[in-house]
Protein backbone atom coordinates (compact mmCIF):
# COMPACT_ATOMS: atom_id res chain seq x y z
CA UNK A 1 0.00 0.00 0.00
CA UNK A 2 1.31 3.42 -1.02
CA UNK A 3 0.38 6.49 0.98
CA UNK A 4 -1.05 9.48 -0.85
CA UNK A 5 0.62 12.87 -0.58
CA UNK A 6 -2.10 13.99 1.81
CA UNK A 7 -1.49 10.97 4.00
CA UNK A 8 2.25 11.60 4.08
CA UNK A 9 1.45 15.15 5.16
CA UNK A 10 -1.19 14.12 7.72
CA UNK A 11 1.04 11.52 9.35
CA UNK A 12 4.32 13.41 8.96
CA UNK A 13 4.95 13.61 12.73
CA UNK A 14 4.60 9.85 12.95
CA UNK A 15 6.70 9.23 9.90
CA UNK A 16 9.51 11.32 11.43
CA UNK A 17 9.77 8.84 14.30
CA UNK A 18 12.25 6.11 13.42
CA UNK A 19 10.09 3.62 15.38
CA UNK A 20 7.13 4.39 13.13
CA UNK A 21 8.29 5.70 9.77
CA UNK A 22 6.37 5.17 6.55
CA UNK A 23 6.16 1.41 7.02
CA UNK A 24 4.81 1.72 10.57
CA UNK A 25 2.19 4.19 9.41
CA UNK A 26 1.11 1.81 6.66
CA UNK A 27 0.86 -0.91 9.34
CA UNK A 28 -1.47 1.30 11.36
CA UNK A 29 -3.58 2.05 8.30
CA UNK A 30 -3.97 -1.70 7.77
CA UNK A 31 -4.75 -2.48 11.41
CA UNK A 32 -8.05 -3.14 13.10
CA UNK A 33 -9.03 -2.43 16.70
CA UNK A 34 -12.24 -3.13 18.62
CA UNK A 35 -13.19 -0.60 21.30
CA UNK A 36 -15.79 -1.84 23.78
CA UNK A 37 -17.51 1.17 25.31
CA UNK A 38 -17.88 4.62 23.74
CA UNK A 39 -17.69 6.43 27.05
CA UNK A 40 -15.01 7.92 29.28
CA UNK A 41 -12.19 5.57 28.27
CA UNK A 42 -13.56 4.90 24.80
CA UNK A 43 -13.59 8.63 23.95
CA UNK A 44 -9.83 9.32 24.08
CA UNK A 45 -9.06 5.86 22.73
CA UNK A 46 -11.34 6.36 19.70
CA UNK A 47 -10.17 9.89 19.00
CA UNK A 48 -6.44 9.12 19.27
CA UNK A 49 -6.62 5.88 17.30
CA UNK A 50 -8.60 7.63 14.58
CA UNK A 51 -6.15 10.54 14.53
CA UNK A 52 -3.26 8.06 14.38
CA UNK A 53 -4.73 6.49 11.27
CA UNK A 54 -5.66 3.06 12.60
CA UNK A 55 -7.54 2.00 9.49
CA UNK A 56 -10.38 -0.11 10.85
CA UNK A 57 -12.01 0.62 14.17
CA UNK A 58 -15.05 -1.11 15.63
CA UNK A 59 -16.93 0.48 18.49
CA UNK A 60 -19.49 -1.25 20.70
CA UNK A 61 -21.97 0.55 22.96
CA UNK A 62 -25.71 0.22 23.36
CA UNK A 63 -26.33 3.49 25.20
CA UNK A 64 -27.39 6.93 24.11
CA UNK A 65 -25.58 10.10 25.16
CA UNK A 66 -26.75 11.56 28.46
CA UNK A 67 -26.05 15.05 29.81
CA UNK A 68 -24.09 13.54 32.75
CA UNK A 69 -21.71 11.83 30.29
CA UNK A 70 -20.29 15.07 28.92
CA UNK A 71 -18.14 15.78 32.00
CA UNK A 72 -15.68 13.12 30.73
CA UNK A 73 -16.87 11.49 27.48
CA UNK A 74 -15.19 14.07 25.29
CA UNK A 75 -16.08 12.46 21.97
CA UNK A 76 -19.74 13.43 22.53
CA UNK A 77 -20.99 17.00 22.26
CA UNK A 78 -24.00 18.71 23.82
CA UNK A 79 -25.92 18.41 20.57
CA UNK A 80 -25.51 14.61 20.75
CA UNK A 81 -27.63 14.17 23.89
CA UNK A 82 -30.18 11.46 23.22
CA UNK A 83 -28.28 10.06 20.20
CA UNK A 84 -26.65 6.61 20.13
CA UNK A 85 -23.09 6.90 21.44
CA UNK A 86 -21.67 4.76 18.64
CA UNK A 87 -23.11 7.11 15.99
CA UNK A 88 -21.92 10.21 17.81
CA UNK A 89 -18.43 8.67 18.19
CA UNK A 90 -18.25 7.42 14.63
CA UNK A 91 -19.06 10.91 13.25
CA UNK A 92 -16.26 12.53 15.25
CA UNK A 93 -13.77 9.85 14.25
CA UNK A 94 -14.42 10.01 10.52
CA UNK A 95 -14.68 13.80 10.74
CA UNK A 96 -11.23 13.84 12.28
CA UNK A 97 -9.78 11.36 9.81
CA UNK A 98 -11.62 10.16 6.70
CA UNK A 99 -8.94 7.44 6.26
CA UNK A 100 -10.55 5.52 9.11
CA UNK A 101 -13.33 3.04 8.50
CA UNK A 102 -15.54 2.87 11.59
CA UNK A 103 -17.93 0.03 12.22
CA UNK A 104 -20.57 0.59 14.90
CA UNK A 105 -22.29 -2.02 17.07
CA UNK A 106 -25.19 -0.59 19.04
CA UNK A 107 -25.58 -3.67 21.20
CA UNK A 108 -24.64 -4.91 24.65
CA UNK A 109 -21.62 -7.19 24.29
CA UNK A 110 -22.58 -10.57 25.73
CA UNK A 111 -21.56 -14.20 25.65
CA UNK A 112 -23.76 -14.77 22.59
CA UNK A 113 -22.44 -12.06 20.29
CA UNK A 114 -18.91 -11.39 21.58
CA UNK A 115 -16.96 -13.87 19.45
CA UNK A 116 -18.64 -12.79 16.23
CA UNK A 117 -18.16 -9.07 16.92
CA UNK A 118 -14.50 -9.48 17.88
CA UNK A 119 -13.59 -11.85 15.05
CA UNK A 120 -12.37 -9.27 12.47
CA UNK A 121 -10.17 -7.31 14.90
CA UNK A 122 -6.45 -7.52 15.80
CA UNK A 123 -6.76 -6.07 19.32
CA UNK A 124 -9.50 -5.37 21.86
CA UNK A 125 -9.70 -2.36 24.18
CA UNK A 126 -11.82 -2.52 27.31
CA UNK A 127 -13.54 0.81 27.92
CA UNK A 128 -16.49 -0.60 29.85
CA UNK A 129 -17.76 0.39 33.26
CA UNK A 130 -18.85 -2.83 34.92
CA UNK A 131 -17.32 -6.10 35.99
CA UNK A 132 -19.61 -8.39 34.05
CA UNK A 133 -18.31 -6.75 30.87
CA UNK A 134 -14.68 -6.62 32.05
CA UNK A 135 -14.60 -10.34 32.86
CA UNK A 136 -16.45 -11.24 29.66
CA UNK A 137 -13.93 -9.26 27.62
CA UNK A 138 -10.98 -10.87 29.42
CA UNK A 139 -12.40 -14.33 28.77
CA UNK A 140 -13.12 -13.42 25.15
CA UNK A 141 -9.51 -12.30 24.69
CA UNK A 142 -8.03 -15.39 26.35
CA UNK A 143 -10.32 -17.87 24.56
CA UNK A 144 -9.77 -16.27 21.14
CA UNK A 145 -6.09 -15.43 21.69
CA UNK A 146 -6.62 -11.74 20.95
CA UNK A 147 -4.51 -9.15 22.79
CA UNK A 148 -6.47 -6.94 25.17
CA UNK A 149 -5.78 -3.64 26.85
CA UNK A 150 -7.71 -3.45 30.11
CA UNK A 151 -8.54 -0.11 31.70
CA UNK A 152 -10.45 0.85 34.82
CA UNK A 153 -11.12 4.11 36.63
CA UNK A 154 -12.58 5.02 40.00
CA UNK A 155 -12.78 8.42 41.68
CA UNK A 156 -9.23 9.87 41.35
CA UNK A 157 -7.42 6.76 40.16
CA UNK A 158 -7.11 4.38 37.30
CA UNK A 159 -5.38 1.21 36.14
CA UNK A 160 -4.18 -0.24 32.84
CA UNK A 161 -2.91 -3.69 31.93
CA UNK A 162 -2.05 -5.23 28.58
CA UNK A 163 -2.83 -8.90 28.10
CA UNK A 164 -1.24 -11.04 25.42
CA UNK A 165 -3.03 -14.36 25.85
CA UNK A 166 -0.75 -17.34 26.22
CA UNK A 167 2.21 -15.11 27.00
CA UNK A 168 1.28 -12.81 29.83
CA UNK A 169 -0.95 -12.66 32.89
CA UNK A 170 -4.64 -12.08 32.24
CA UNK A 171 -7.10 -10.00 34.26
CA UNK A 172 -8.32 -13.13 36.08
CA UNK A 173 -4.73 -14.01 37.06
CA UNK A 174 -5.04 -11.00 39.41
CA UNK A 175 -8.78 -10.66 39.93
CA UNK A 176 -10.14 -14.20 39.88
CA UNK A 177 -13.81 -13.35 39.66
CA UNK A 178 -16.06 -10.31 39.81
CA UNK A 179 -16.61 -8.85 43.27
CA UNK A 180 -20.06 -9.50 44.74
CA UNK A 181 -22.62 -7.25 43.06
CA UNK A 182 -22.93 -4.02 44.99
CA UNK A 183 -19.63 -4.44 46.88
CA UNK A 184 -17.89 -1.92 44.68
CA UNK A 185 -19.43 1.22 43.35
CA UNK A 186 -19.05 1.11 39.59
CA UNK A 187 -21.54 3.57 38.25
CA UNK A 188 -23.10 6.85 39.10
CA UNK A 189 -22.75 6.47 42.88
CA UNK A 190 -18.92 6.42 42.96
CA UNK A 191 -17.98 9.46 40.92
CA UNK A 192 -14.83 10.03 38.91
CA UNK A 193 -12.76 13.06 38.06
CA UNK A 194 -13.45 13.30 34.32
CA UNK A 195 -9.87 13.80 33.25
CA UNK A 196 -8.85 10.45 34.80
CA UNK A 197 -10.64 8.82 31.87
CA UNK A 198 -8.46 10.91 29.56
CA UNK A 199 -5.23 9.82 31.27
CA UNK A 200 -6.12 6.13 31.42
CA UNK A 201 -7.70 5.99 27.95
CA UNK A 202 -4.66 7.71 26.45
CA UNK A 203 -2.36 5.12 28.02
CA UNK A 204 -4.59 2.37 26.62
CA UNK A 205 -4.42 3.93 23.14
CA UNK A 206 -0.63 4.17 23.45
CA UNK A 207 -0.40 0.47 24.33
CA UNK A 208 -2.45 -0.44 21.25
CA UNK A 209 -0.27 1.67 18.96
CA UNK A 210 2.91 0.10 20.41
CA UNK A 211 1.44 -3.36 19.96
CA UNK A 212 0.44 -2.68 16.34
CA UNK A 213 3.85 -1.18 15.58
CA UNK A 214 5.71 -3.91 17.48
CA UNK A 215 7.74 -1.27 19.34
CA UNK A 216 8.69 -0.74 22.96
CA UNK A 217 7.74 -2.69 26.05
CA UNK A 218 4.08 -3.41 26.60
CA UNK A 219 2.31 -3.27 29.94
CA UNK A 220 2.19 -7.05 29.93
CA UNK A 221 2.76 -8.75 33.29
CA UNK A 222 2.28 -5.35 34.88
CA UNK A 223 -0.66 -3.50 36.32
CA UNK A 224 -0.12 0.22 35.95
CA UNK A 225 -1.86 2.25 38.61
CA UNK A 226 -2.31 6.00 38.53
CA UNK A 227 -3.40 8.03 41.52
CA UNK A 228 -4.12 11.64 40.61
CA UNK A 229 -4.27 12.94 44.18
CA UNK A 230 -0.71 11.86 45.00
CA UNK A 231 0.49 11.83 41.35
CA UNK A 232 1.86 8.36 42.00
CA UNK A 233 2.21 6.18 38.94
CA UNK A 234 3.23 2.62 39.75
CA UNK A 235 3.93 -0.35 37.53
CA UNK A 236 3.22 -3.37 39.69
CA UNK A 237 4.75 -6.58 38.42
CA UNK A 238 2.30 -9.46 38.15
CA UNK A 239 2.74 -12.92 36.73
CA UNK A 240 0.70 -15.58 35.07
CA UNK A 241 -1.15 -17.34 37.87
CA UNK A 242 -1.02 -21.16 37.58
CA UNK A 243 -4.33 -21.21 39.47
CA UNK A 244 -6.03 -18.73 37.12
CA UNK A 245 -9.47 -20.17 36.26
CA UNK A 246 -9.09 -19.37 32.55
CA UNK A 247 -5.39 -19.30 31.65
CA UNK A 248 -3.93 -21.38 34.50
CA UNK A 249 -2.81 -25.01 34.55
CA UNK A 250 -6.30 -26.45 35.07
CA UNK A 251 -8.76 -23.97 33.59
CA UNK A 252 -12.34 -24.30 34.77
CA UNK A 253 -13.65 -21.66 32.38
CA UNK A 254 -13.74 -22.87 28.80
CA UNK A 255 -16.73 -20.95 27.45
CA UNK A 256 -17.97 -17.37 27.63
CA UNK A 257 -20.67 -16.66 30.13
CA UNK A 258 -22.50 -13.61 31.41
CA UNK A 259 -22.47 -12.51 35.01
CA UNK A 260 -25.64 -11.16 36.53
CA UNK A 261 -24.63 -7.62 37.28
CA UNK A 262 -26.41 -4.39 36.74
CA UNK A 263 -25.26 -2.54 33.68
CA UNK A 264 -24.84 1.18 34.03
CA UNK A 265 -27.50 2.19 31.58
CA UNK A 266 -28.42 5.83 31.46
CA UNK A 267 -31.90 6.80 32.40
CA UNK A 268 -33.32 7.66 29.00
Amino acid sequence: MEMTEDQIHRYSRHILLSEVGGSGQVKLLNSSVLIVGAGGLGSPVALYLAAAGVGHIGIVDMDVVDLSNLQRQVIHHSKDIGRPKVLSASEKMTGLNPDVEVKTYQVLLNSENAREIAAPYDVIIDGTDNFSAKFLINDLAVLTGKPLVHGGILRFSGQVMTIVPGQSACYRCIFREPPPAGAIPTCSEAGVLGVIAGVVGSIQATEVLKFLLGKGELLTNHLLTYDALTVLIRKVGVRKNPRCPICGDNPTITELHDYEQPVCANPV
Binding site: Q73, G151, L154, T225
Partner: peptide, 11 residues
Protein backbone atom coordinates in the same frame (compact mmCIF):
# COMPACT_ATOMS: atom_id res chain seq x y z
CA UNK B 1 2.82 -6.68 49.62
CA UNK B 2 0.79 -5.18 46.80
CA UNK B 3 -2.85 -4.43 47.46
CA UNK B 4 -4.55 -4.20 44.06
CA UNK B 5 -7.94 -2.56 43.80
CA UNK B 6 -10.85 -3.52 41.62
CA UNK B 7 -11.60 -0.59 39.33
CA UNK B 8 -14.76 -1.12 37.41
CA UNK B 9 -15.37 2.30 35.94
CA UNK B 10 -14.74 3.28 32.36
CA UNK B 11 -17.78 4.83 30.79
Amino acid sequence: LEILFFMGGGL
